[in-house]
Each structure stands twice: as structure tokens, then as C-alpha cells.
Amino acid sequence: MATTPESCRIPAGRLLFLDLETTGLSGGAGTIAFLAGLGRVVPGGEAEGFEIRQYLLIDYPGEDAFLDALLGALVSETVLASYNGRSFDEPLLRTRCILNRKHWPPHPHADFLPAARRLWRKRFPDCSLGTLEALMLKRQRSLDVPGARIPEIWFEYAKRGSHPLMEAVLEHNAADVESLAAIAAECARTYANPVDARDCDRTALGTLWLKLQPDTGRAVLERAFEEGEERAGWMLLRHYRRNGVWAEYRRVLSALSPGWDSWIERAKDAEHRLGDPRAALQAARSARVFAADTELREHLELRIRRLTRKTAAIRQREDRTSRPR
């Protein structure tokens, strides 16, 4: 999947949600996947449901069969859906296949982590599955095993044939798959109704849409700007400038809150496009008021000096032309 919005537009019915439990996080050849949770939406009209299948590796020698089962579940028209699976889960499975002399076929894969990051990075402390689950989906897990303990539980389980917490690991994995599906649905909803989407980084969303569908993107950004998102204003400003829509450009520019950057932008507009060096000089002087950085101040001094010369030249010219002979 090339871009994030694309993965959000895949019909839920085609997605196969995948989450692995592994014996480590390094992803090297000594890390194995021992539990795979696969979730999918089961169509049925009113009775539409969500089905989770779990494949558990009982012990090392079963890996061959474990991988065969997983490969069998990947029907060709399904799209793998994961959370960070493109850099972790899928390469790990590929490695396991190579070690077991199997072929992991290239498969379309929608990783929802980048999509979620775009939308909610500004809203939540981080975009881990756990954080979004708790803060956005408002789900609570009653008795969850900490992820760090999971490898050791499986090592014990495989060695002794049982472990009191293995059941809890299975539940943990199933809950991850459910949350993944819920986050994917939330991503899809947000992308589908970008203008009305709540509780997300509307500016980021609008920026994305601007590339895909400029009308939608503009609408989302205008809405964000109205809500006071200064970044959205700048995004729009750049967009209108690039496309030469000067009326809209100046409307946004005048609405941007005062700062060295907006004043410089105004100075440039006055000097280069409106041909009004006096207004430009005024704007540059206003910019200087806000400039704290020395380098920036030096830059502004240069600009002011140049504009002063320019206006002085104009004044002289005006003087000459108005002087009575």
C-alpha cells in the first residue's frame, strides 16, 4: 500500500488483521513467532461479526506446521492488516519461512501505524496500540499480561506443556487484534469524513487530502484554520500561493496571527507582488519586533536597509518629478 489513505479505503471485508506474539523484539534469526492472531470481519448483513482465529505453537518442532497454517490462511484476495507489521511482524515471518525453507509470498499489506500517527500524533502522548486503545477507544483490559513477560511464559509453556498464564497471553493477543481492527475502522471513518472528523489532527488530515483531492483537502484545512489551527493556515497559504490564487492567499495571510514569519510573508508579498516597497518596509519593521533570533534579526536588518534604499530612491524620483522647474 503506497500511501496511508489508501490503506484506509480498503473495504473492511478484505482485511486480514494480524498480530504476532514473539520470543523477543530483536527480530534476528533467533526470535520466533509462537502465537498468531488473525481477525476478519464476517459478512452477514445485520449479523455482521468479527472472527478471531489464533494459531499457537506448542513447541519448536511444530514451527513448520504453524507456518503452513498461517500461509494457508492468507487467501490471495485478502490484504494483511497490522500495526507496525511492515517493519516487524512480516519481516519476522519471512525470516521464519526462510529458516524453515518455505517461501513467504509477497502480499499486499496495510500497516495502520503510519496512518494512526498522522491522525493522532498531536492528540495523544504516543500512538502505540495500548495508548490509542486506552485513550481513544476507551477500552480497558481487566487482567492483562505485561508484554515483557510474554516470551518467558511461552518458554515455560513449551518446556512443561502448560503455564497458568498462557490463557492470559491468548487473551492479550486477541485483544490486540480487536483493538487493531477498531483502530483501522477509526482510521477509515476519519479519512472518509475528513471535514467532520473529530478528535484528530485535522491539519495533517487536510494536508494528506490536499494531495489526493484538493477540494476536500482545502475544505478540511479551512475548517481547521477556522478552529484556530495556525499550521492549517500556513498550509493553505502555501497552497494558494503555489496555485496563484491571490485573493484567497491574501485572505489567509491577513488572518494569520502576527509573528515574524507572517510579517515577513507580508513584506515579500508587498515588495514583489504588490510593488509597494513602503508597505513592505512597514511589514519588515513589524517583523523585527517579533524576531528574537540574532541570525534572523541580521537578515531583517538587511531587508530593512534594502527597502529603505528602495523607498528613498522612490522619494527622490517623486521629488524630482514634483519639483517645479
Partner: peptide
């Protein structure tokens, strides 16, 4: 020490660590 385990006639790495590190 539980760092490897024999199963199915082979010795498998059975730790979550990355030894070469």
C-alpha cells in the same frame, strides 16, 4: 541455564536476548 532447549532432536535458542549484542 535455560538459554537453549533441546526439542525434536535440535537445540533451540530459548531466550528473548540477542547474544551478539
Amino acid at each position: 541455564d535455560g538459554i537453549v532447549r533441546k526439542a525434536g532432536g535440535r537445540w533451540h535458542w530459548s531466550s528473548s536476548g540477542y547474544p551478539s549484542e
